[in-house]
Amino acid sequence: MENDYPEPSPEEIDRLYSRLEKEARQGGYNLNSDGEFARGLVKGLLVNERRYGYQACPCRLAADDKIADLDIICPCYYRDADVTEFGACYCALYVSKAVLKGEQKLGSILERRPPKEERQKLQPQPEPQSKSLLSASVAEPRAGPGTLKLSVPVWRCLVCGYLCGRDGPPEICPICKAGKERFERFI
Protein backbone atom coordinates (compact mmCIF):
# COMPACT_ATOMS: atom_id res chain seq x y z
CA MET A 1 0.00 0.00 0.00
CA GLU A 2 2.74 2.43 -0.92
CA ASN A 3 1.90 5.77 -2.38
CA ASP A 4 4.07 6.13 -5.45
CA TYR A 5 3.51 9.85 -5.89
CA PRO A 6 5.67 12.50 -4.25
CA GLU A 7 3.99 14.18 -1.29
CA PRO A 8 2.68 17.67 -2.03
CA SER A 9 4.90 20.23 -0.34
CA PRO A 10 3.53 22.57 2.39
CA GLU A 11 4.02 25.47 -0.06
CA GLU A 12 1.89 23.75 -2.72
CA ILE A 13 -0.81 23.04 -0.15
CA ASP A 14 -0.76 26.65 1.04
CA ARG A 15 -0.95 27.95 -2.51
CA LEU A 16 -4.01 25.88 -3.41
CA TYR A 17 -5.61 26.53 -0.03
CA SER A 18 -5.24 30.31 -0.48
CA ARG A 19 -6.66 30.14 -4.00
CA LEU A 20 -9.65 28.03 -2.97
CA GLU A 21 -10.29 30.25 0.03
CA LYS A 22 -10.30 33.37 -2.14
CA GLU A 23 -12.48 31.79 -4.83
CA ALA A 24 -14.91 30.47 -2.21
CA ARG A 25 -15.27 33.90 -0.67
CA GLN A 26 -15.82 35.53 -4.07
CA GLY A 27 -18.51 32.99 -4.96
CA GLY A 28 -20.33 33.25 -1.62
CA TYR A 29 -18.96 29.96 -0.23
CA ASN A 30 -16.88 29.28 2.89
CA LEU A 31 -13.93 26.96 3.41
CA ASN A 32 -13.81 25.05 6.69
CA SER A 33 -12.19 27.36 9.24
CA ASP A 34 -10.31 24.45 10.83
CA GLY A 35 -7.11 25.20 8.95
CA GLU A 36 -5.38 21.90 9.68
CA PHE A 37 -8.47 19.93 8.65
CA ALA A 38 -8.94 21.96 5.44
CA ARG A 39 -5.24 21.73 4.55
CA GLY A 40 -5.44 17.95 4.95
CA LEU A 41 -8.23 17.88 2.38
CA VAL A 42 -6.38 20.27 0.06
CA LYS A 43 -3.40 17.92 0.24
CA GLY A 44 -5.76 15.10 -0.80
CA LEU A 45 -6.88 17.17 -3.79
CA LEU A 46 -3.26 17.64 -4.86
CA VAL A 47 -2.54 13.92 -4.41
CA ASN A 48 -5.57 13.05 -6.52
CA GLU A 49 -4.57 15.56 -9.18
CA ARG A 50 -1.23 13.75 -9.49
CA ARG A 51 -2.81 10.34 -9.49
CA TYR A 52 -5.76 10.92 -11.79
CA GLY A 53 -5.12 14.25 -13.50
CA TYR A 54 -8.07 15.92 -11.80
CA GLN A 55 -8.91 17.02 -8.27
CA ALA A 56 -11.29 14.25 -7.26
CA CYS A 57 -12.94 14.48 -3.82
CA PRO A 58 -10.41 13.20 -1.26
CA CYS A 59 -13.18 11.35 0.61
CA ARG A 60 -14.48 9.38 -2.36
CA LEU A 61 -12.91 6.60 -4.39
CA ALA A 62 -12.11 7.97 -7.84
CA ALA A 63 -12.51 5.73 -10.89
CA ASP A 64 -9.43 7.17 -12.64
CA ASP A 65 -11.80 8.18 -15.45
CA LYS A 66 -12.55 11.89 -15.69
CA ILE A 67 -15.89 11.47 -17.44
CA ALA A 68 -17.10 8.94 -14.86
CA ASP A 69 -15.88 11.22 -12.07
CA LEU A 70 -17.10 14.59 -13.39
CA ASP A 71 -19.58 14.71 -10.50
CA ILE A 72 -16.94 14.30 -7.78
CA ILE A 73 -14.30 16.71 -9.02
CA CYS A 74 -14.02 19.34 -6.29
CA PRO A 75 -16.28 21.28 -5.90
CA CYS A 76 -18.60 18.35 -6.50
CA TYR A 77 -22.15 18.33 -7.87
CA TYR A 78 -23.40 17.48 -4.36
CA ARG A 79 -21.70 20.30 -2.45
CA ASP A 80 -24.47 22.88 -2.48
CA ALA A 81 -27.21 20.46 -1.41
CA ASP A 82 -25.03 19.04 1.37
CA VAL A 83 -23.98 22.47 2.65
CA THR A 84 -27.66 23.43 2.76
CA GLU A 85 -28.81 20.21 4.46
CA PHE A 86 -25.85 19.25 6.66
CA GLY A 87 -23.87 22.47 6.95
CA ALA A 88 -20.94 21.03 5.02
CA CYS A 89 -20.10 19.20 1.84
CA TYR A 90 -19.31 15.48 2.03
CA CYS A 91 -15.64 15.92 2.90
CA ALA A 92 -16.38 19.15 4.86
CA LEU A 93 -13.96 21.34 2.92
CA TYR A 94 -16.88 23.70 2.31
CA VAL A 95 -19.17 24.69 5.17
CA SER A 96 -22.25 26.82 5.71
CA LYS A 97 -22.16 30.25 7.28
CA ALA A 98 -23.86 28.82 10.39
CA VAL A 99 -21.07 26.24 10.79
CA LEU A 100 -18.47 28.93 10.20
CA LYS A 101 -19.99 31.05 12.96
CA GLY A 102 -20.14 28.08 15.30
CA GLU A 103 -23.95 28.10 15.38
CA GLN A 104 -24.21 24.67 13.80
CA LYS A 105 -22.18 21.58 14.67
CA LEU A 106 -20.80 19.31 12.00
CA GLY A 107 -21.95 15.73 12.03
CA SER A 108 -21.44 12.73 9.82
CA ILE A 109 -22.72 13.43 6.33
CA LEU A 110 -24.58 10.81 4.34
CA GLU A 111 -23.31 10.06 0.85
CA ARG A 112 -25.59 11.79 -1.62
CA ARG A 113 -23.78 10.47 -4.69
CA PRO A 114 -25.82 7.58 -6.10
CA PRO A 115 -24.05 4.20 -6.33
CA LYS A 116 -22.27 3.48 -9.61
CA GLU A 117 -25.06 1.32 -11.02
CA GLU A 118 -27.65 4.06 -10.44
CA ARG A 119 -25.39 6.80 -11.80
CA GLN A 120 -25.09 4.92 -15.06
CA LYS A 121 -28.88 4.78 -15.35
CA LEU A 122 -29.31 8.50 -14.70
CA GLN A 123 -29.32 11.15 -17.42
CA PRO A 124 -26.29 11.03 -19.68
CA GLN A 125 -23.22 12.95 -18.58
CA PRO A 126 -22.58 16.15 -20.50
CA GLU A 127 -20.39 15.64 -23.54
CA PRO A 128 -16.77 16.31 -22.72
CA GLN A 129 -15.91 17.72 -26.10
CA SER A 130 -16.63 21.34 -26.77
CA LYS A 131 -17.43 20.36 -30.33
CA SER A 132 -20.51 18.41 -29.33
CA LEU A 133 -21.47 21.02 -26.74
CA LEU A 134 -21.32 23.68 -29.37
CA SER A 135 -22.87 21.95 -32.33
CA ALA A 136 -25.21 19.05 -31.50
CA SER A 137 -27.17 20.47 -28.60
CA VAL A 138 -27.49 24.00 -29.94
CA ALA A 139 -29.53 22.58 -32.78
CA GLU A 140 -31.95 20.81 -30.42
CA PRO A 141 -33.45 23.19 -27.87
CA ARG A 142 -34.86 21.11 -25.02
CA ALA A 143 -37.86 23.38 -24.47
CA GLY A 144 -39.43 22.07 -27.67
CA PRO A 145 -40.77 23.87 -30.71
CA GLY A 146 -42.95 26.89 -30.15
CA THR A 147 -42.51 27.08 -26.37
CA LEU A 148 -39.52 29.37 -26.18
CA LYS A 149 -37.73 31.47 -28.70
CA LEU A 150 -34.21 32.22 -27.59
CA SER A 151 -31.53 33.96 -29.56
CA VAL A 152 -28.95 31.79 -27.75
CA PRO A 153 -29.14 28.61 -25.64
CA VAL A 154 -28.97 28.71 -21.85
CA TRP A 155 -26.21 26.74 -20.09
CA ARG A 156 -26.32 25.57 -16.50
CA CYS A 157 -23.33 24.88 -14.29
CA LEU A 158 -23.85 21.44 -12.75
CA VAL A 159 -21.88 22.44 -9.66
CA CYS A 160 -23.47 25.72 -8.59
CA GLY A 161 -26.43 26.24 -10.93
CA TYR A 162 -25.04 29.37 -12.60
CA LEU A 163 -26.97 30.10 -15.79
CA CYS A 164 -25.80 31.97 -18.83
CA GLY A 165 -27.16 32.58 -22.29
CA ARG A 166 -24.49 32.22 -24.96
CA ASP A 167 -23.51 30.00 -27.87
CA GLY A 168 -21.52 27.63 -25.66
CA PRO A 169 -20.69 27.26 -21.98
CA PRO A 170 -17.91 29.49 -20.57
CA GLU A 171 -14.39 28.05 -20.24
CA ILE A 172 -14.82 28.13 -16.47
CA CYS A 173 -17.82 28.99 -14.32
CA PRO A 174 -17.38 32.56 -13.03
CA ILE A 175 -18.97 31.56 -9.71
CA CYS A 176 -17.52 28.17 -8.75
CA LYS A 177 -14.70 27.76 -11.32
CA ALA A 178 -16.05 24.48 -12.69
CA GLY A 179 -14.75 23.70 -16.18
CA LYS A 180 -16.98 23.90 -19.25
CA GLU A 181 -17.28 20.10 -19.40
CA ARG A 182 -19.37 20.38 -16.23
CA PHE A 183 -22.12 22.47 -17.85
CA GLU A 184 -25.37 21.19 -19.29
CA ARG A 185 -27.62 22.63 -21.93
CA PHE A 186 -30.50 23.94 -19.80
CA ILE A 187 -32.80 25.62 -22.33
Binding site: F37, G44, V47, P58, C59, R60, C91, A92
Partner: peptide, 9 residues
Amino acid sequence: ALSTCIWCK
Protein backbone atom coordinates in the same frame (compact mmCIF):
# COMPACT_ATOMS: atom_id res chain seq x y z
CA ALA B 1 -10.38 3.68 4.19
CA LEU B 2 -8.92 6.12 1.68
CA SER B 3 -5.44 7.51 2.23
CA THR B 4 -6.61 11.03 1.27
CA CYS B 5 -9.75 11.08 3.42
CA ILE B 6 -9.68 13.08 6.64
CA TRP B 7 -12.73 11.31 8.11
CA CYS B 8 -10.98 7.98 7.50
CA LYS B 9 -7.95 9.38 9.31
